[in-house]
Amino acid sequence: MAYNVTVADLVENTHLDIFYGKEYLDRPITTSDISRPGLELTGYFNYYPSKRIQLLGITETSYAKGMDSDELFDVMKRMCLPETPAFVISTQLDPPDELIRAAKNQHIPVLGSKLTTSRVLSNMTNYLEGKLAERKSIHGVLIDVYGLGVLMTGDSGIGKSETALELVKRGHRLIADDRVEVYQQDEQTLIGQSPMILRHLLEIRGIGIIDVMNLFGAGAVRSQTKVDLIVHLENWSDDTPYDRLGNGDETRRIFDVDVQRISIPVKTGRNLAIIIEAAAMNYRAKKMGYDATKVFDNNLNNLIKENSGDNKH
């Protein structure tokens, strides 16, 4: 699953100007790759990626100025194919007249930006990669706890939403309840967000659906966050061996990223909100190089050595 993206979305989210084609901004964009059509200006079209946004910077427009007008118009007509989403001119440059004429024939928008080619390329790529990335829907609740994205999972009725409400009351921020849409931003980063229909909403059994932003303010919600830690809530069982020292290395693979996963048993009287806060702070401490489990092991080893030395005497 991925979002559908149009040229209008790109214009709005990357702040592009419109030279031509305001009425044709509904054209779809199907790839996040951006093309810099340099070789095409010389007439080489063997590998022309026509489905990409075509970005022209100082180099391309300078070369175009030195071309014969009829020759340039012929090249632009070959570049303006029905599947080409749009042309973007960077660095506040004016588009060649031949490009505007060719684009009009195929109803292709011609856009512009004040930013340099590198900047506008980066902005468009980041936006399109996020929107066009494959998405996975995960049953759970995503909360920003001390700046860390904590994904709570577990069976229905285990208390995920109630715990999220307590965390929001304690100053943390809700991203998604019940269904979390996750996509891979890069080789090491997962981003989670809420479906539009559920944004800022939290379902509490016995009360119903509440609007977190309306009740607690804009500071109680976020639109998206990284998924740093998975906390799995499960019913307490005396027969289940739970991690008591914190030296477990359980992970869950989502797309190509392994996310640390801890299991917390749910039992009457346990304050899950405080436990999850502690889990988040402990995760951050480990990332900063401090591991309480290693400190305990070192203390234990030192104590054993001391006792062994006393016994020899």
Rank of each mutant, 00 (worst) to 15 (best):
K136D: 04
K294D: 13
T59C: 08
H172D: 06
N299K: 10
T6H: 08
I18L: 12
R284I: 01
T91W: 14
Q193F: 10
G159V: 11
L56C: 03
G289L: 11
L198H: 13
E71D: 11
T251N: 11
A86K: 03
L165C: 07
D228S: 05
V110P: 04
A218K: 04
I204G: 15
I89Y: 02
P109T: 07
L128T: 00
L55K: 01
D243A: 15
L93I: 10
S90T: 12
P195R: 04
V75G: 00
I143H: 04
L198G: 10
G206R: 15
R173E: 15
S223C: 14
S90P: 10
A292P: 09
K131F: 01
G66E: 04
V221C: 07
V11E: 15
L229Q: 15
N307I: 02
G289Y: 12
I175P: 02
L115K: 11
V295G: 04
A273K: 03
S237K: 13
N282H: 06
E98G: 14
Y20M: 13
D144W: 01
K131G: 01
G206Y: 11
V266Y: 01
I29A: 10
K136S: 14
V75T: 09
D238S: 06
G66N: 11
E83Q: 15
D239C: 05
D239L: 13
H172G: 14
R252A: 03
G309S: 06
D238Q: 08
V257S: 03
Y290T: 06
A279C: 15
N46D: 13
N46T: 04
K267S: 00
I58C: 06
S137W: 09
Q260T: 12
H15M: 12
L303T: 07
T30L: 02
M1A: 10
P265C: 02
D238I: 03
T84Q: 02
R270L: 08
R253M: 13
F255E: 04
V221W: 05
P96I: 09
S223W: 08
E12F: 04
D238E: 12
Y290E: 12
S122K: 13
H139D: 05
L41S: 07
G38F: 03
R179M: 11
K287C: 04
E166V: 03
G248P: 07
A133M: 05
V231C: 05
R36K: 09
P109Y: 00
T251W: 02
E23I: 03
A285T: 02
G57P: 04
N4I: 15
N282T: 14
S308W: 02
V141A: 01
T293I: 05
Q106A: 13
Y48A: 01
P28V: 07
M213F: 06
K51P: 09
T251R: 13
S62M: 11
K226S: 14
V7Q: 10
E234C: 09
T268G: 05
T91H: 10
I276C: 00
Q260S: 13
N247H: 09
G21K: 01
T116A: 15
T14S: 05
Y127V: 01
D249K: 04
